[in-house]
Design a protein around this nucleic acid. Sequence first.
DNA 1: TGTATATAGTGCGATATCGCACTAGTGATG
DNA 2: CATCACTAGTGCGATATCGCACTATATACA
Lengths: 166, 166
Amino acid sequence: MAHAHNKASGARSAAINEGLANVLFDVWLVSRATTALIDTAVQASGLDADEFAIYSVLASTDGITPTELARWMAAPTTTVSSYVKRFERRGHVRRTSNPADGRSHVVTLTAAGRQAHAAAGELFSPVLDEATQLLGTDVDETHVRLQALHDIVATMSTRDSDSSQG
Amino acid sequence: MAHAHNKASGARSAAINEGLANVLFDVWLVSRATTALIDTAVQASGLDADEFAIYSVLASTDGITPTELARWMAAPTTTVSSYVKRFERRGHVRRTSNPADGRSHVVTLTAAGRQAHAAAGELFSPVLDEATQLLGTDVDETHVRLQALHDIVATMSTRDSDSSQG
DNA sequence: TGTATATAGTGCGATATCGCACTAGTGATG
DNA sequence: CATCACTAGTGCGATATCGCACTATATACA
């Protein structure tokens, strides 16, 4: 991602919203704004928003295969493959062989990787705090709605790609 | 985006969620899953999820400048610039001069562009319907939460980029 | 009205994303 | 234990994204 550009329309022009008022479009808009915000926030750490998210996943798993990661973040395996290669080049990630499957391997954050993640986390924290504070009592509700929506979308995706062949 | 890959983990592995339970991370996950889903859904129309979203914005505005569009979708102007160029190459978009500002111009969907958007819309519709149906009575609440979150994030972004120089 | 500063948009180059085709290893079936 | 369909992962090439530097126009202000 790494755009971290300037300005966003705080006051949404109502006229444009006509015909655009649906949850999936909402997700798109929110996500773009959020990514931009976090890109800017964590920029100094050398990570962008997507990378920070991925490092977070890695940090909370100790050990995940590229395919699992790809499913998790709904990305093509080739994309994950190049992410891992990049992170490895930075010395932030290590591959260890997967005892359970010889074709596969397990990806883990190195100490440097955890440190980079922590640094980005320091920058991310106040942003999350402010957003949380602005949401006020709605935080939990928002979280629940997002989780529910994710489950729905994930289920739909899974069904679509499973058994394409009848 | 245009990934439209395979499979997503329908059942979220609870263990991984530790430390990842925050609204902004939620947004990232939902958005990735949604984009993947819509990429696949509208693929046959020749548009990807992002393009469909942008065409939707264009369709509901008749006439927007690149900068306005960039603010709307929280993208760098260079990115919007290449989007517009691409759409123009496809014959889906037309530029007309902006009477209000000589540096600028107004971007509009052509008839072919509206048609492409409609075609993608046909493919998108059932997906939105199903998601809506699965959300049930929560749709409105979800929509409201997403809008609220968007306003918050947009406000934060705007403040950050306004008056960087004191 | 002349000069300074800010904004709209683009060309270009570096890097990222991801589809296709491929290799290597797995697991089921006879 | 041979065969065969299937899955994990990667190299490569086409295209997309976006920062930097630049041009053209607009606005502020003396």
